[in-house]
């Protein structure tokens, strides 16, 4: 119990004093996960929309892959990304392993099925009657797709929340491909793991609290947007 209380006291100290190391870890975490989220939305939005609208042979299999991806263990994603970027791998020449770029790739792969899957579900949920009505009003194909995306915006928002939640709190893949290098690839989750192992509970708790607060703030922000949409 004492350890926990001491840990919280130290955590508060670190947070109030705006510890340089802590700030750096937060910055790397947000930059890496934010970039991965942007990439997963850039790929997932058109992919999810296409899957939600189009009917083609093999759609079931792609959808099944997507759903499998939603529950895929991140550490396995990390393993594949590690192999691809290792010296023996096809992209080894890029020397991205143990850099934030490799983490971005891994996190993008982790978030993509969630983003695309939720967007696909949201697009599929758009009233079929509305699709008929839009065509009757004379929309072009591009206008139709854009209007549907706007109609499915609540689902898209949930997709973004889910995607961000998945990558900011992920540890296995980041550890594998990033290596937890201080000042370079150390993010909140890997830092918590390291500090806990070294018995520096104060820093670990401080980082844990920050992770919780960041996730909470982003969720509150998204929920507010959602509320605004509904009202």
């Amino acid at each position: 119990m004492d350890t926990l209380i001491e840990g919280f006291q130290e955590a508060l100290k670190l947070l109030i004093s705006l510890d340089r190391e802590v700030l750096q870890i937060i910055a790397v975490s947000l930059r890496v996960s934010g970039t991965a989220l942007v990439f997963s939305v850039l790929i997932g939005l058109p992919l999810g929309t296409f899957l939600g609208l189009a009917n083609f042979p093999g759609k079931k299999i792609i959808t099944a892959f997507l759903y499998t991806g939603m529950g895929f263990p991140p550490v396995v994603v990390g393993l594949f990304v590690f192999i691809i970027f290792s010296n023996a791998g096809p992209l080894g020449d890029l020397n991205w392993l143990f850099t934030t770029r490799a983490i971005v790739v891994a996190q993008t792969v982790i978030a993509l099925p969630l983003v695309a899957g939720f967007i696909m579900t949201a697009v599929m949920g758009v009233d079929k009657n509305l699709l008929l009505q839009l065509r009757s009003l004379g929309v072009t194909r591009v206008q139709m797709i854009w209007t549907i995306i706007k109609e499915a915006r609540l689902g898209a928002l949930i997709a973004i929340i889910a995607g961000f939640g998945a990558v900011i709190s992920e540890v296995g893949a980041v550890m594998l491909v990033g290596g937890n290098i201080q000042g370079k690839t150390r993010v909140l989750t890997t830092a918590i793991m390291l500090e806990t192992r070294q018995g520096r509970f104060g820093l670990a708790i401080a980082l844990g609290l920050i992770l919780l607060v960041i996730t909470f703030i982003i969720n509150i922000f998204m929920l507010n947007l959602q509320e605004k949409e509904r009202s």
């Binding site: 009657n129 009505q133 839009l134 004379g138 072009t140």
Partner: peptide, 19 residues
Amino acid sequence: DLDQRRSITTVLQRSALLH
């Protein structure tokens, strides 16, 4: 063509409005 099709529209039984 699109111009010709855009000179016709339907009001459906169940109004389908945008959110």
